[in-house]
């Protein structure tokens, strides 16, 4: 009883502001609710909204965009994360400062990071153009005007911002590897590459998986970058699910239809996270290890 009363407040919050809203989203998604037409009332239309969602090409495109975004960002984040982690795992003078510097992109508000990158990619005052073309302004490119580059721009901004997070988790994994293992391998004449493949990679795998899980889930809800940098354009090339749902519910006022997107997003992420958790195993919960 005492134990329950201790976790009760926590669960009160989770229930009211997380689980109940999810169920409520499902309820809303079965109705036609248009905020700007209260005269329509809120008719119950079974799965009408879902049927429509099925034929909604833009929803499909934003789903594809979201997946593309998740794959490319997590891939590069893990890659850079591993590199950074390997670098800052060593003992050297000034390591604290290096670690802090690496942490800064992670700590900066995403909105601020988005504005920074939007400015860097700017077609007239952008640092990127200056870096590439110097003062030859005639060559300056409008990066965010091109569907492919605009997409890559938000990928780049996200990779910059969160590689350090992946690095930290991987670093924690690296630190569990006892130095003795490396020493023994060295004595046996293993090359640096062999040591990396045979010792580091297998032992850091759990950390990599967890980093992957966190990054995937976080990339799935990308919103700030899109809102600030591109507003989903050009030509919907950067429209992602969370932004599309936001537009439907809050800008167009289609509360019912928008809620189907909410439900869809929820189930997709639930599926993915369960898949990951199965891969990582129950060790995560610290009960049976």
């Amino acid at each position: 009883m005492f134990a329950l009363s201790l976790i009760a407040p926590c669960f009160l919050f989770i229930l009211t502001f997380a689980f109940y809203p999810i169920a409520y989203s499902f309820f809303l998604s079965l109705h036609r609710i248009i905020i700007s037409l209260p005269g329509l009332e809120q008719p119950f239309i079974w799965f009408g909204n879902y049927k429509e969602l099925f034929h909604d090409k833009i929803a499909l495109q934003s789903l594809v965009n979201t997946f593309l975004f998740v794959f490319t960002t997590t891939f590069f984040e893990l890659l850079f994360g591993l590199a950074i982690a390997l670098a800052i795992n060593k003992h050297f003078r000034g390591r604290g400062i290096v670690r802090a510097a690496v942490l800064i992109p992670w700590a900066i508000p995403t909105v601020v990071a988005s504005q920074m990158w939007r400015f860097i990619f700017n077609d007239t005052y952008g640092l990127l153009n200056y870096a590439f073309f110097g003062s030859d302004t005639a060559l300056y490119q409008a990066w965010l005007a091109d569907p492919l580059f605009a997409f890559l721009a938000i990928v780049a901004a996200d990779v910059w911002k969160t590689s350090s997070f992946a690095a930290l988790i991987i670093l924690a994994g690296l630190q569990t590897i006892p130095d003795e293992l490396y020493d023994a391998a060295k004595i046996d004449g293993a090359t640096a590459w062999q040591r990396f493949v045979k010792i580091t990679l297998p032992l850091v795998k759990p950390a990599l998986l967890i980093a992957l899980l966190f990054r995937t889930m976080d990339a799935f809800r990308v919103f700030d970058l899109v809102f600030v940098m591109t507003q989903g354009g050009p030509a919907d090339s950067t429209n992602v699910l969370q932004f599309y749902g936001y537009k439907k519910i809050f800008a167009e006022g289609l509360m019912g239809y928008g809620s189907t997107i909410s439900v869809l997003v929820f189930f997709v992420t639930l599926l993915i996270s369960l898949l990951y958790l199965k891969m990582i195993g129950t060790r995560l919960f610290g009960e049976r290890s």
Binding site: D146, P234, A235, D236, E252, G253
Partner: peptide
């Protein structure tokens, strides 16, 4: 139209698509 925002969003997507690609 009271649903102008929705119409406009559709038009924005469409226009952006055809002039970009």
């Amino acid at each position: 139209s009271p649903l102008y925002p929705a119409i406009s969003n559709t038009l924005q997507r469409f226009f952006s698509k055809i002039i970009t690609d």
